[in-house]
Amino acid sequence: MGPQSWIVGDESAKEVLDRVFMERPFLLLPPLHRVPLRVGNVVELVGPSPSAKTQILIQAAISCILPKEWNGVQYGGLDHPVMFIDLDCRFDILRLSEMLKHRIMEATGSMKKRGGELKNAEKSISDRTRKPDIAFDEKLFIFCINRFLYVRCSNSFEFLATLKLLHHRLWKEKETHGNSVHLLMIDSIGAFHWVDRASTFLPLRDNDRCRKSLFLQGVSEAVVQEIKKLLRVHPMLIIATKSTILGDRYSSTSSEVKWNFMKHNFQDTSDTRNVTRNKLQLLHREYMPSVWQSFVTHRILVQPSDDHFATSNHQNHSLHVLEWLLPSLSFLDKFIVTDSGVSVVS
């Protein structure tokens, strides 16, 4: 290959764009739609428990597993399997199945409504097909729920073993479903924080300088490394939740915490944020090792609020507030949780 062909180039800008959009598509997953997220991003959902974090994950999972179109009905899904790694060990499939049923019924219902506006002839056709329509729903439901892939881990070693073998599993799923997994969810990333923090390696030999003494650090490094490796072969969007487990610790008298408190305070004031924000940030003190922090590309804070929102059928729902911390956006999204999932209200 001569230098000439080097300069000529392989593809035009349009071709590059087309290819990139094919390989690394944007995933629009309300309420996480303010910033375009795409495959390869690592999103962290921070919030106290409960703040509808898992709810948002389930919502995203459903948007992903639903097909774009099924028997002429638009479902607007992304048509890809999803992988859910449950570190909290409290995922409830019934909630997902209920929500999925709701979403499917909503879509078919709106279809029928539109059918009513059509000509009579067409209406009679839709009437005739109503019965098989319901049977198809069940088929679609099974089709979708089969694309929800799940694994639970109850300690860091299980998590690492899972990540190490995930590669093979994803290939297999790609073969069975025809589509590759585009979304990997981790709920929640800090689940083993305390256990790992208390563990250290037991030295097997004396004068063992190769062995890392900081277990927590080591685990995080290994996790990030495994995910990075995974992303190279399987481009995926990663959404990890993180609960604020250190919420009430700032009042502790421990000097370490106090020092962190001051450091944090200082950082925040240097950020010229107001006092209330300061306190807010304080409640959500970072505890993940820096290797994870720098791995995260987008950070979102969700919190329950005391306000309410009345929906059209006179039901009162409490509002949740969603704020983008990375990239920092100045406005807040408010959302409520209903039967059909998370819906943004303002």
Partner: peptide
């Protein structure tokens, strides 16, 4: 070693397995 590690994680499931279990 990889087969040993494969035995260390919990089983891979899908939504249908979970639903049946529930």
């Amino acid at each position: 070693i990889l087969t040993i590690i494969d035995g260390l994680h919990q089983p891979w499931l899908n939504g249908l397995d979970l639903l049946e279990d529930a």
